[in-house]
Design a protein around this nucleic acid. Structure first.
Length: 315
DNA sequence: CGGTTTTGACCTGCGC
DNA sequence: GCGCAGGTCAAAACCG
């Protein structure tokens, strides 16, 4: 599983635009300020503006430092998580309750050893291969939501149709079953259930791989998606990703996703797409007068949520 | 009116 | 074989 390059580029995607934005906004504000000062040429007013500018710069610097610290912490947590995942991936898969894809796989050579099994010699390899395929495409995503939010909705950019809900024995919270809206042409399913330990965390389990583009990617490509897809999951199930949500202030994008998957998405991996996303993020954010406020909110939110995040990385 | 959600019934695999 | 638990189906309700 070679996903480190993708993960690191994805992380850069989150980190670099901030630096780009910071430089761009500083230069922009400075040039606007200079022009304005020349035109008005009122010393008192310019003095006040300089003072304001210094204050904003100091605030900007402070935010940048906080962001740097945050990114370092995020990196450390991500490394912890990937270490943990690689150590426990085998254990996790064999220990799951899921029967079709795992238990039968592990017992196929006969813990029960019943020679009168209904499976024929032709069926066995075929079934095994199919189950292994399914097993290989299972991925999990942990999504933080508002504690008051009782819906089992994970905004991952795809459209889902709920086909069932069940209360399971090991968790009092109901588990919801979703199929991709493109079914039956797209076979992907997902299960969403609240974590037993932290009920503000949704655990989404994806099975299969989408054979069509992510709807949010399509919207972004069309330029109609003003809320950049940082917080959404660009999920072809099976790719490793980490996403940093800078748009926490928006209710529609409050989800904070840390996902473990197993192989990269070609579209997201291409330099053109990354460049496009960076440019789009930069342009949309620099035009937004609420950007500073939203950034501050995101950072404070991150800091407040740091402990639960550490908790996830242990689980 | 068509698509989605809800929810009880049903199916299937596993352990005893 | 039986009971349990997870997963799926499908009819009714809901919604835009």
């Amino acid at each position: 599983m070679d996903c480190s390059s993708w993960r690191s580029t994805h992380f850069d995607l989150n980190a670099n635009p901030v630096r780009v934005l910071e430089d761009a906004s500083n230069k922009e504000v400075e040039s606007h300020f200079v022009d304005f000062a020349r035109k008005v040429s009122v010393k008192e007013e310019s003095g006040a503006l300089v003072e304001e500018m210094n204050r904003v710069s100091a605030e900007n610097k402070k935010l940048t430092e906080m962001l740097t610290v945050m990114c370092e912490n995020y990196n450390a947590l991500r490394n912890q998580l990937s270490d943990y995942m690689s150590k426990n991936s085998d254990k996790e898969l064999s220990g799951s309750r899921k029967r079709k894809s795992e238990s039968s796989n592990n017992n196929i050579n006969g813990v029960n050893g019943n020679s009168e099994s209904s499976s024929t010699d032709e069926e066995l390899p075929c079934k095994k291969a199919r189950e292994e395929t399914i097993k290989a495409k299972i991925s999990k995503a942990y999504v933080r939501t508002e504690a008051s939010d009782s819906s089992l909705v994970v905004k991952d950019g795809y459209q889902w149709r709920k086909y069932g809900q069940k209360v399971t024995r090991d968790n009092p919270c109901p588990r919801a079953y979703f199929k991709c809206s493109f079914a039956p042409s797209c076979p992907v399913k997902k299960k969403v259930q609240r974590s037993v330990e932290d009920q503000s965390v949704l655990v989404a389990t994806y099975e299969g791989e989408h054979n069509h583009p992510n709807t949010s990617q399509l919207e972004a490509t069309n330029g109609s998606n003003r809320c950049v897809t940082i917080g959404s999951l660009p999920c072809s199930a099976g790719s490793t990703l980490t996403a940093l949500d800078l748009t926490k202030a928006k209710p529609s994008s409050t989800d904070q996703i840390i996902a473990k998957q197993s192989k990269p998405v070609a579209k997201m991996d291409s330099p053109e797409v990354r460049q496009f996303l960076v440019e789009q993020m930069a342009s949309s954010l620099t035009k937004d007068p609420n950007f500073t406020a939203a950034l501050a909110a995101a950072i404070s939110g991150r800091i407040l949520h740091q402990n639960p995040t550490e908790k996830w990385s242990r689980n």
